[in-house]
Amino acid sequence: MAGIGGDAVLVDRLRAGEERAFDEIAVALYPAMYGVARGYVGARTVAEEVVQEAWLGVLRGLERFEGRSTLRTWILRIVANIARDRAVREARSMPFSALDLDESEPAVEPHRFRGADEPYPGGWRAFPTDWRTLPESRLLASETLELVRGAIGELPESQRLVITLRDVIGCSAEEVCETLAITPGNQRLLLHRARARVRARLERELDG
């Protein structure tokens, strides 16, 4: 997606009714819009409906877009609002519940560290394998990337939402907080839980 300057140009092209501009942004933003929608509503077909409804809202509101946030953040917030309403109507449990923010989920399994009554308490029993010693082709192999995709798909909803926006789509931390209406602290906590789970999945694969 274009930056701030690019946003103004893109908004002008959309306002002028340029179909190519609309096509480009609809395609480019789809993974992010779908990812946000899916995080709240669960079902694929419902998430696609949310994206469609969001675009109608975006077009209706385009004249009022003032560029106070980026176009992407503004659009993703519209998606999140519609998806939240939809989840409430369908009495679906929401992400970002207290359960999702369970502080006790460790980034690394506790048995990997030495106990309080051992020398160097809290230190690694055995160091993790240095991936920098692996051939690069191993990390870039399509099976490895497929594994990352699968691991992200299996995350709890709130973690999946945050890592999808932040690492998969490449939003800034501020954009994620604004889109999902969460605090920077919760954003980092969920991001770290998510990354830690995906890392653990990779570790099992790469060490095996």
């Binding site: 993974p31 990352v148 932040r166 690492d167 789509i169 830690a196």
Partner: peptide
């Protein structure tokens, strides 16, 4: 490893419109 994990996640989506 966490840095690498984050970098590997970039773009791993099959969600095409």
């Amino acid at each position: 490893q966490i840095r690498t994990t984050a970098a590997m996640a970039l773009g791993v989506t099959e969600d095409r419109i």
